[in-house]
């Protein structure tokens, strides 16, 4: 039965949020999220392997605890691309496709640190949390993976099932800056 059409339903397809200079929220494209599990949590430096596996631009590598990373990008990953990425990581690490299990939200603006401080105890001052830093933390009542993309831009990654709930929280936390 190849006449059935299989369509993606984005987790935050109907979400609307603030878009002001203070804070703006954007649901990022459901491209790909690959969880990388190092063979040993305290393995030797894998940055070279990761960089090679992540390949060309449009993909970023975010640290996610000892021996673990997320490789993320805005475009979906084909089966072959995933297999290639997976192979490139062997034997140092295993790739797990989490493209559907994790949802990414971009938060940015002049007041973004103040807004996020309502949820996380991580000190987001650029001196303490420079561009490129990632943290797994509790944002309100929901566990997230937080990365500073630019000085006033953060990417939040959350379990798909919590995405709507987190989005609502973020909208409320942003209300005073919107």
């Amino acid at each position: 039965m190849s006449d059935f059409r299989i369509a993606l339903r984005p987790a935050l397809g109907s979400a609307t949020g603030p878009a002001s200079r203070g804070v703006s929220l954007t649901a990022m494209p459901e491209g790909h999220v690959v969880q990388v599990l190092g063979r040993r949590p305290h393995a030797p430096d894998l940055s070279g392997v990761l960089e090679k596996a992540a390949g060309p631009a449009h993909r970023a590598v975010h640290a996610a605890g000892p021996g673990q990373w997320f490789i993320v990008g805005d475009a979906p990953l084909s089966r072959d691309e995933f297999a290639a990425l997976s192979a490139a990581l062997q034997p140092h690490a295993t790739a797990v496709d989490q493209s559907h299990g994790r949802i990414r939200i971009r938060v940015e603006g002049t007041m973004v640190e103040r807004m996020l401080a309502k949820g996380t105890a991580v000190d987001l001052d650029p001196g303490a949390f420079p561009v490129g830093t990632s943290a797994m933390t509790l944002l309100g009542h929901v566990s997230v993976h937080l990365t500073r993309i630019e000085i006033a831009v953060f990417e939040i990654m959350v379990l798909r099932g919590f995405a709507e709930s987190l989005w609502e929280d973020l909208v409320r936390m942003s209300a005073e800056f919107a």
Partner: peptide
């Protein structure tokens, strides 16, 4: 001395 789990962090 206790075991603590960083449940909402690195999960170690």
């Amino acid at each position: 001395r206790e075991y603590w789990h960083h449940t909402s962090g690195c999960r170690r």
